[in-house]
Design a protein around this nucleic acid. Structure first.
Length: 353
DNA sequence: AAAACGTGGTC
DNA sequence: TGACCAAGTTT
């Protein structure tokens, strides 16, 4: 049997998968049917996020909201709070919106085909294919970063991403079997995650080594080629640490769309490319107060820019009624604060008292 | 269709 | 220290 035969390749991969058997929290056990709710929840969390980070969030969500109907019944703030720290918060907004559609319009049943799944909020090409294959046993071509890398190497595709995507998908489709599509989808992704890794691929123990053109040509480590990314600019902001007499500090909610949309924040100036001057703060302050600069700065890096935040502290008079909520220091954990805001809070607690 | 959108770990 | 990267989607 020639090693380039698609059936032989998919079979050898499935054999490897059965033998290696990574145990992941969302994976069905002992031949049990995969629960579409579990598959959907895990796949949305796994978008651009590592297994290690997702696992505890997945278990926490499932414990708190055992069904899609339960999740649909949660408040927006509860969901955002539970998602805090995972990043890409549009996913949480779309997750909740999707849960409502499925629970209210479909009686809690997820659609079982790619085309219908694709219409739901937060479900794109990858997630639709993954749910169709893993939860419903449908043959679907699952394309994520792992599969792109594995295909680029296996077939020695040197054309850089993202232009190579259609070709890579066609190659992946040529290998996707009719049998055990869900296991096969997870097997290719596992191969990319554990052996065919971005750096130092473990070709020596790869079930596809004999067939791998990239390996034969000695270019596996250079693949997939990628276009250079744009530079990240640096933006600047000033955070207002407003403390009331009883110690409570001021938080407010960010606008529902855009960066950190719907999450809570320490009141801030906008984040712009030019640093802020002291005489500009009066026009940006959440309440009128004398502001005292705190030493040091908080650095944070987002996907597309670096951020440098300075802090100013002020005391709020008791009759101040700003747009926001006052939160006791020991209750800050009760709110939907993204990681960058927790960084700011840690800094303020260290410097302002 | 290019750009926006988080975070933490790794080398 | 910093660039790269992770089971992508939306506009």
């Amino acid at each position: 049997m020639p090693v380039c035969d698609p059936t032989a390749l998919s079979q050898s991969l499935l054999a490897w998968y059965d033998r290696a058997g990574r145990t992941l929290p969302w994976r069905k056990k002992g031949g049990a049917a995969a629960d579409p709710y579990h598959v959907w929840l895990s796949e949305v969390m796994l978008q651009q996020t590592t297994v290690v980070v997702v696992a505890p969030y997945f278990l926490r969500f499932l414990e708190r909201w055992p069904t899609v109907a339960a999740l649909a019944g949660a408040s927006s703030d509860e969901v955002m709070h539970a998602w805090a720290g995972l990043g890409y918060y549009a996913r949480a907004r779309n997750l909740h919106a999707c849960a409502k559609v499925v629970a209210e319009w479909r009686g809690g049943a997820f659609p079982d085909d790619e085309e219908s799944l694709r219409k739901l909020p937060g479900i794109g090409d990858y997630t639709a294919a993954a749910i169709a294959a893993i939860a419903f046993g449908r043959r679907a071509v699952v394309m994520d970063g792992n599969v792109e890398r594995v295909m680029a190497r296996l077939f020695a595709v040197s054309e850089p991403l993202p232009a190579a995507k259609p070709r890579l998908k066609a190659l992946a489709a040529s290998l996707t079997p009719d049998l055990r599509p869900g296991d096969y989808a997870q097997a290719v992704m596992d191969l990319g995650a554990t052996l065919c890794t971005p750096r130092n691929p473990a070709c020596g123990i790869c079930p596809w080594m004999a067939a791998c053109d990239g390996r034969k040509q000695g270019i596996e480590a250079e693949l997939p080629a990628k276009l250079a990314k744009a530079e990240r600019p640096t933006r600047h902001g000033v955070m207002f640490w407003a403390a009331r007499k009883d110690g409570a500090v001021l938080l407010r909610r960010r606008p529902p769309q855009g960066l950190l949309g719907g999450m809570m924040e320490i009141p801030s100036t906008p984040w712009r490319e030019s640093p802020w001057q002291a005489d500009e703060l009066a026009a940006e302050q959440p309440l009128a107060a004398p502001w005292r600069p705190l030493p040091g700065l908080v650095r944070h890096t987002f996907t597309h820019f670096h951020l440098e935040l300075r802090l100013v502290a002020g005391k709020a008079s008791s009759n101040a009624t700003p747009l926001g909520i006052w939160v006791a220091l020991d209750k800050l954990g009760d709110h939907a604060l993204p990681s960058v805001m927790n960084k700011v809070i840690r800094h303020a607690l260290a410097k302002a008292y």
